[in-house]
Design a protein around this nucleic acid. Structure first.
Lengths: 231, 231
DNA sequence: TAGCAGACAAATATCGACTTTCTGTCAAAG
DNA sequence: CTTTGACAGAAAGTCGATATTTGTCTGCTA
């Protein structure tokens, strides 16, 4: 299973059976960073992770190298690795870029619309809605799955990868702001449904507006509830 | 020296003194892929690279993992690494994305314009023009340096990294099409100067037009001269 | 003759030990 | 009292060897 699998992002929750130790370490560390278990800027010592994941040093090092792709880990030559720092400025940048790139991707995706894409998007929304526990990890996967499904038809794998990366970076800030805050006082379910409805109607402008508004609202929400601004 | 150093992209040609074996392997393999020494889709066997670079397996593996970030290498779990494939479709995608993202970056860069940025861009052009051998490696570095210097002031490190990646991916296609073809029958020097002039005049629209036209011309040029289209 | 099973060869992935580099502390000098 | 230098501990980086996996080739069977 390739590391960067974009197209299956909306697939069923992956079997946790992991083929290689590197892959397992990659998943585990990625999750720890996204969830905030490893704090922004924190030094990632090989020995510590090695013990925590019960693996050798090689898989850990390689996983960390791979996580550099996702901008979740910084590599400092001869000085090891650290979790990517977080700050208000960085958050704003991510939000802005996300809006720009996803807008682009969504428009292209709708322009190329076909039945398979549409049905996949509908299914993704359905699966997400069905999952009631909004704090669970699988919900996060399904949520990402839905958003990626909307963009999946844009015909540009590289653009998709960028969007996927930015999504993850953004998710981390959600957790940093306190996972419980998010989604509480808002009707995100409705927002998702409305975005999908516009997309299904092939209304590019409306879909894009709704998507961006969705992100801006979430962004304002997070900003207001105070971001962690360490290192 | 960090692997992902965007801000110094236009700095003087880097000292070749390499601190870590991984870093050395990274640079060497990256160059081999960009230049076409390692063909698209080619299997990258650890033993072979290990011997060729006179290093251990660990640095090679880690370098390959890092090159995954740049989309220059594909990692297939339990099946090793291979150089990223190349095809017409991929080239078109890169060109299109590049135009979109660099347009964005250039506009922001000019919007934030200040003296330091402007002078850095002027210097970068000068250094590139001074280098007469247009085929040498250092010219390639200076050329990238100039283009990145134009964008450097956009205030978005992530966007810059994306542009840098796309630049590299594009460079590879230049080499694939035959390094000598490029730049031969065109006055790229003039085009560069004109882009810079527009940027210095803070004429956002003109600068963007000229930049995109520059890329489109190069793109058409490469497309016409026939791309390698092997898996 | 086509297809499948098993074994052999090659290459990847992983481990554990060794070397190099960094970091923090403590003492001596300015 | 601050600063500089060296030493010791810790951590990163690297190497060589081993274990697992994959791909291929052969030979048997229907």
């Amino acid at each position: 299973m390739p590391v960067n699998d974009l197209h299956d992002a909306a697939a069923l929750p992956q079997t946790t059976s992991v083929t290689s130790a590197t892959q397992g370490a990659y998943n585990a560390i990625r999750r720890m960073i996204l969830v905030g278990d490893l704090r922004p800027g924190e030094k990632l010592k090989i020995d510590v992770l090695k013990a925590r994941l019960d693996t050798g040093a090689s898989p850990v090092r390689e996983a960390l190298s791979l996580l550099t792709s996702d901008q979740l880990v910084e590599r400092i030559d001869q000085r090891g690795f650290r979790a990517a720092p977080a700050c208000q400025r960085n958050f704003d940048e991510i939000l802005k870029l996300r809006c720009a790139l996803e807008d682009m991707a969504l428009r292209q995706s709708i322009a190329n619309a076909d039945d398979a894409w549409e049905e996949h998007a509908v299914l993704s929304l359905h699966r997400m809605s069905r999952e009631d526990s909004k704090t669970s990890d699988t919900y996060e996967d399904l949520h990402k799955g839905f958003h990626m499904a909307l963009l999946a038809n844009c015909g540009s794998p590289i653009l998709l990868k960028f969007c996927s990366q930015l999504y993850d970076l953004n998710v981390r800030y959600r957790y940093l702001a306190g996972r419980s805050l998010d989604y509480k006082s808002r009707h995100v379910g409705d927002e998702h449904a409305e975005i999908l409805a516009a997309a299904v109607k092939r209304d590019v402008g409306l879909a894009s507006d709704r998507l961006l508004s969705h992100y801006q609202k979430t962004g304002a929400f997070l900003r207001q509830s105070g971001l962690v601004s360490e290192s």
